[in-house]
Computed example of a mutant assay.
Amino acid sequence: MGLTNRQKEFFLFIKNFLDEYGYPPSVRDIAKGMGVTSISSVKKMLDRLAEAGIIKKDSSKARGIELINRGVPLLGRIKAGTPVFSEENIEGYVELAEKFKNTQNLFCLKVEGDSMIDKGIFEDDTAVIKKQPDINEGETGAFRINDEVTLKTFARKEGYILLIPANKRYQSIRVTSKDSFEVIGKLIFVLKDFN
């Protein structure tokens, strides 16, 4: 898509606003939400997003913004193996089947590695994650450990957390109170590319 970080921030603001309220933001809503004092700066940013082909603008309407692609954002790669850092950069969008109408709080990550193969999760699969701050025992999810991101099954032990792979060649990752740890979200399903 080739957007700058600031353009991505504006696009995500518009998408999140639309998901939350069911209608697009006005130029003033965007200015307020993005902390911009100049309405003309917002209009210029909207022009750039329209040129990039990700929004349509109708200047005759106060809320005349339409997203071209309302798919689930593909944010990069997640290691199913040893954790690696995964930047939240939008690389594209994944269109989900019609039955998945509510895509709010969903995002996708491409899987790297083979530590989850016994759960049927392979390299280059697309993991669809629901962003949430907690996860239940035995659920698989995306986790950030000391600024690295991994896909594993969650278990809580006395005094620590265990992130368990689904491949006997890999050891579980033990997370203690000394580690920086965050639940990014729960794995909802995996998309496979059979080409």
Rank of each mutant, 00 (worst) to 15 (best):
E182V: 10
S40R: 15
G92Q: 01
K131W: 08
F11A: 06
I184Q: 07
F189P: 03
F122K: 10
E87M: 13
L106G: 04
L12I: 08
L74R: 09
V149R: 01
A166P: 04
C108P: 01
K192G: 07
L74N: 03
Q104A: 12
N136A: 15
I145C: 10
L67N: 12
A166C: 04
S40K: 14
E51H: 08
I78D: 07
I135A: 01
V183P: 06
T140P: 08
I39R: 00
G76R: 03
E123C: 12
K15Q: 02
L75S: 05
K8Q: 14
I90Q: 11
N16T: 13
G71V: 15
N136C: 14
S40F: 14
K99M: 13
P25D: 10
E20R: 03
E182Q: 13
R28P: 05
L106V: 04
V27I: 00
I164H: 13
I65T: 01
A31I: 09
T126L: 15
L46F: 12
L191A: 14
A142I: 03
G2N: 09
S172N: 10
D114Y: 11
S26P: 00
G53D: 11
E9V: 00
I39S: 01
P24G: 06
T176S: 09
L18K: 08
V128I: 12
S180F: 07
I65Y: 03
R28H: 06
I129R: 07
G35M: 08
L12K: 00
V111S: 01
R156S: 12
D114Q: 05
E91C: 13
R156C: 09
F11G: 04
I184H: 07
I188C: 03
V84F: 06
G81T: 10
E9K: 09
M1H: 14
N195M: 09
E88Q: 00
G113A: 10
I68K: 00
T37S: 15
I55C: 03
F100Y: 08
S60P: 13
V149D: 12
I129H: 01
K56C: 14
P24K: 10
S115P: 10
I121V: 03
G2L: 05
P133D: 13
G159P: 12
F11C: 04
K110E: 05
R156T: 13
A52F: 05
L109M: 05
L12S: 02
F189M: 08
T4W: 07
A52L: 10
Y23I: 11
F194C: 03
I14T: 02
I145N: 01
S38L: 07
E123P: 05
V94N: 05
T153I: 08
D134Y: 12
S177Q: 13
K101Q: 11
G113E: 03
N136M: 15
L96D: 02
D47H: 02
I145A: 05
Y93W: 14
T103N: 09
I65A: 09
Q132M: 11
R174K: 15
A97Y: 14
I117N: 06
T150M: 02
K44H: 15
G92E: 02
V84S: 11
